[in-house]
Nucleic acid binder design. Structure first.
Length: 430
RNA sequence: GGAGAGAUGGCUGAGUGGUCGAAAGCGACAGUUUGCUAAACUGUUGAACUGGGAAACCGGUUCCGCGGGUUCGAAUCCCGCUCUCUCCGCCA
């Protein structure tokens, strides 16, 4: 959620930002609605406050009044005031709810360096790191490898749960756990507090982070008869962890690395790049999250990106870094970098597929989650900035590892950095 | 799932219908004292929104877990909910 005052003072900037981000026309119109509603709200608030002021005055006077006749007069005035304010109070509440609702639909402002535009063409490739390996044979994709080595069972997943679900078996299980442990250990050593989060969260928290669980094209599974949703990322539970708190300036930045399962309906994503493990309804993810002072978020964002790159460098997977264009930022992100890993077989002839993503959400999430900090020596509180970044999305990392580390004999080498966690050097071999 | 107890400011904790944004203590901050620290003493000390003012500051509204209700008036009475604790049941 943007700051209402900021929106009112910068209507044209906010609207231009909406256009840059290619939001729907209805959302662009929300800016006007917000301005109009705020005007109405202030007008009525003034009237209501005046009525309440007088009502408080009367009520106090009534208590002090000893004379029965005068007392009765005051009570009568109090009753009249009560009647008068009833409707206005209701209108005021309705206006406030609508205002907040519409304000919440306006996306975050955008970092000035983010490329303006929409679609893959507008994304800016910052760099490519690593060299794709040359194969002496036609590289097999992870579906084939997973089946041949009895490591991934999509049929059982489909039967028991549905399309988009899968079982990991044998060495894929060890690989999954090794990736989790390697990443957790690395980030715990880099000053992050390790956390295993709940896999469900309240709707209110989802909304605070910027998800919209109720829309028709929602990516989120809701649990019937409750206000709970399965989380699509630990970003939700990590950000929500400090909802409604006031931090001390000295304890920031607070950095967490969280492990959760992630559930996504992938509504409307049918079609391209949905084979195998690439676009599944459930996967496990290790996620970085930070709460920091506004002036630190830019540096921490770059640090998150550095850590993501370091992880893929250590895993020995070629990747490229994308500075995400305005049209693809989503609602909460002020700026976003993606890492796309080389997948030699999943994309015909080899191609890059998104494996991590890190967003600087400025104070957009903190405002709605009400996460503030007390600045030393200053009165009042300010909203923190929040950042999130994928450390490892296990399913997609598995694709990259299986395809990049495959051997001509059908087995798969274990990336050296994972060997200590996996306890073997070749996957699939008994 | 059943029974009971509770939720008040940074913390502890008083407050059962009007003078309560809320006693007291602790903590924190400032001052006095002091070679420095401590102690002692004095004072200050919640938040959001909002009107006036250059500012210091002066007003107003809201907030005692959350949401309703009763009343001229609610921290206080009534209803619903959430959370915490204790006991019982169940359970990995």
């Amino acid at each position: 959620m943007l700051d209402l005052k900021y929106v009112l003072a910068n209507v044209e900037l906010v609207k231009q930002n909406c256009r840059d981000r290619h939001v729907s026309p209805e959302i662009l119109e929300e800016v006007e609605h917000v301005v109009r509603l705020d005007g109405e709200y202030r007008l009525i608030l003034k009237e209501v406050e005046e009525l309440r002021r007088r009502a408080n005055e009367v009520a106090q006077a009534t208590g002090k009044e000893k004379d029965a006749g005068k007392r009765a007069e005051l009570v009568a005035e109090g009753k009249a005031l009560k009647t008068a304010s009833g409707d206005k109070e209701a209108t005021l509440r309705a206006l406030e709810i609508e205002l907040k609702d519409r304000l919440g639909r306006i996306p975050n402002m955008t970092h000035p360096d983010a490329p303006v535009g929409s679609g893959d063409d507008a994304n800016r490739e910052l760099r490519i790191v690593g060299t794709p390996r040359k194969f002496d044979w036609t590289p097999r994709d992870h579906l084939e490898i997973g089946r041949d080595l009895d490591m991934i069972d999509f049929e059982a997943g489909g039967k028991v749960t549905g399309s988009g679900f899968y079982y990991l078996k044998n060495d894929a299980v060890l690989l999954d756990l090794a990736l989790q442990q390697y990443t957790m250990k690395k980030l715990a050593g880099a000053g992050f507090t390790p956390v295993i989060t709940p896999d469900l969260a309240r709707i209110q928290i989802l909304e605070g982070i910027g998800f919209n669980p109720r829309g028709s094209e929602t990516q989120v599974y809701s649990v019937d008869q409750t206000d709970l949703c399965l989380v699509g990322t630990a970003e939700i539970t990590l950000g929500g962890m400090l909802a409604d708190t006031v931090l001390e300036e000295t304890e920031m930045p607070k950095k967490y690395v969280g492990l959760s399962h992630c559930f996504r309906t992938e509504a409307g994503a049918a079609g391209r790049a949905s084979r195998g493990l690439y676009r599944v309804h459930q996967f496990t993810k290790v996620e970085m999250f930070a709460f920091c002072k506004p002036e630190d978020s830019g540096a921490i964002h770059l640090d998150f990106l550095r850590l993501e790159e370091e992880i893929f460098q250590e895993l020995g997977i070629p990747y490229r870094v994308i500075d995400t264009c305005t049209g693809d930022l989503g609602g909460p992100a002020y700026r976003k970098f993606d890492l796309e890993a080389w997948m030699p077989a999943f994309f015909a002839g080899g191609g890059f597929g998104e494996v991590t993503s890190t967003s600087d959400c400025s104070d957009y999430q903190a405002r709605r989650l009400n996460i503030r900090y007390k600045a030393e020596g200053q009165k009042g509180t300010k909203f923190v900035h929040t950042l999130n970044g994928t450390a490892v999305a296990i399913s997609r990392a598995i694709i990259a590892i299986l395809e990049n580390y495959q051997r001509e004999d059908g087995f798969v080498d274990v990336p050296p950095v994972l060997v200590p966690f996996l306890g073997k050097t070749i996957l699939g071999k008994k």
